[in-house]
Nucleic acid binder design. Structure first.
Lengths: 210, 210
DNA sequence: GAGTGTGAAATTGTTCACAGCG
DNA sequence: CGCTGTGAACAATTTCACACTC
C-alpha cells in the first residue's frame, strides 16, 4: 500500500459518501455497480480501487456497508479529526465557515483570520469570531494546525502561505487564484473558479462541433 | 485537433493567466520554461501541450506573448462571452456573485435565482437582484444561457439540474455535494469541498509515513 | 447466478532526447 | 547557441475478461 493516485482518492471519497448514506438507510451490503454509479466510475474500476487495499467483498453478494465505510475512512485518513485554520473572512471565507460538511467530515475549523479591522472581532457564521491575522503565529504555536484554507485576495496569498508553513501547517487548500510556491513537503490543493469555468467553455466548444 | 484532455485544459488556463500578465508587463516573448513554472508543469510538457494545436513558437526565442494568448483564448473557447445563470443565493452564491474573475474571463452572470421568499427581490453582490426560481424557465426561454452554476443545498440540486437542462443549459458547474444525473450531452463539473479536504487528509497521512 | 478479485491488454498521459530552426 | 517541435520510450490508469467464491 504505497502511493494512491489522486483520481483514486477522489473516487474513494465518493464511495464513502454513498456508503454512509447506505449505512443510514440500513442497507447491509453494497455492490460495485451501486458504488460505481455514485462515484462516476465503472464497476470494474470500483473493484480495482478497493482491491488495492485488500479484499473485503463477498463474492456473489457485495461489500459489507459498515465495514467498508470504516476501512475507507481509515484509508482516507479520516479516523481522527483535523484542526483547520481559515485565513480570509471575505465571501469565500463566509461560505466556508458555514459549510456543514466541514465539521461532519472530521475537520474542526479552529480559527478564522483577517487583516481588515472592520471584520476583526465580528462574528463569521455561527461559531466563529474573526481574529487579527497578526496573532496567527502565536495562536498556532499554542494550538498547532496541520491544515489551512487560504481565502484571501490573490495579492496576499503567497505571503500568508509562507507564514502558515513557517508556523507548521503541512497542507493548504488554496482558493486564491494564484499558484503558491511552498516547500515540497507541504501539500497544496488549488480550487480555482476560473479554471472550472474555462473547462466548461472548452466542453461547450466541443459540443458545438458534434 | 480532436479531444483535449482535462488536465491539459487546466494547464492551458494557467498558461493563459501567465501570458496575460506578461502581456500587461510588456514582455514580448515567453519561453516554455517560464510557462512551465506557472502552470505546474515541465518545459517539455508545455511544448507538448502547445504543439498539439500547432507551432507558434520561435526557436531560440520563445512564444510571442500576445499571439499565443489570443490563440489560447480561442482554444479555450473564450473568444466570445458566455451568459451564466446562478441558482442558489446562499453563501456560495454570494461568493460567486462577488467573484471578479467571472466577468474578467468572459462570463456574464445573467441572473441569480432562489426559492427563499426572504431572499427574492434582495440584492446579491453589486449588480444582482435575486429572482424567484419559479421564473427560471420563462427567463431562459427569452434569454437562453448555456452555462449554469448550482449552489443550492444538496437536496434541491438534482431537480434544479433537470429544470436547467430542460431549459437548454448545456454545461453545469455544481457546488452541491451530490453527483448529478444528466443526459450525456450535458457537461457537469463538480466542485466539492469535502473531496478536496479529504485529498489533503490523505496527503497528510502519507507525509507522516515518510 | 450474482458479484468479487486480478492478471493482462489497451489506452492515456508524461518524460526524454535530440533534430532543426532562428 | 538557445529554445522549439516531436517521435519514441516510459509510466500511469482504465478497461477487459474470466477464474473463483458465496
Amino acid at each position: 500500500v504505497r502511493h494512491v493516485a489522486l483520481s483514486t482518492v477522489r473516487r474513494l471519497s465518493l464511495y464513502l459518501q454513498f456508503l454512509e448514506e447506505s449505512e443510514r438507510a440500513g442497507t447491509p451490503t453494497v455492490s460495485s455497480r451501486a458504488l460505481a454509479e455514485r462515484g462516476g466510475a465503472t464497476p470494474a474500476q470500483v473493484r480495482k480501487d478497493l482491491s488495492f487495499f485488500g479484499s473485503f467483498g463477498k463474492r456473489g453478494v457485495g461489500y459489507p456497508t459498515a465495514e467498508l465505510a470504516a476501512r475507507l475512512k481509515d484509508i482516507l485518513g479520516l479516523s481522527h479529526r483535523y484542526r483547520v485554520v481559515l485565513v480570509g473572512a471575505g465571501r469565500i471565507g463566509a461560505a466556508l465557515a458555514a459549510y456543514p460538511g466541514f465539521d461532519a467530515r472530521g475537520f474542526d475549523l479552529a480559527a478564522v483570520y483577517d487583516v481588515d479591522a472592520a471584520k476583526i472581532g465580528k462574528r463569521l457564521g455561527d461559531r466563529h469570531i474573526v481574529r487579527d491575522l497578526a496573532g496567527l503565529e502565536t495562536d498556532l504555536a499554542s494550538q498547532p494546525s496541520q491544515i489551512a484554507v487560504i481565502g484571501t485576495p490573490a495579492a496576499a496569498a503567497q505571503s500568508v502561505a509562507e507564514r502558515l508553513v513557517k508556523a507548521g501547517v503541512r497542507a493548504i487548500l488554496n482558493f486564491a487564484p494564484v499558484p503558491l510556491t511552498v516547500p515540497p513537503e507541504v501539500t497544496v490543493t488549488n480550487v480555482n473558479m476560473a479554471l472550472e469555468l474555462e473547462a466548461l467553455s472548452v466542453a461547450l466548444k466541443h459540443q458545438r462541433r458534434s
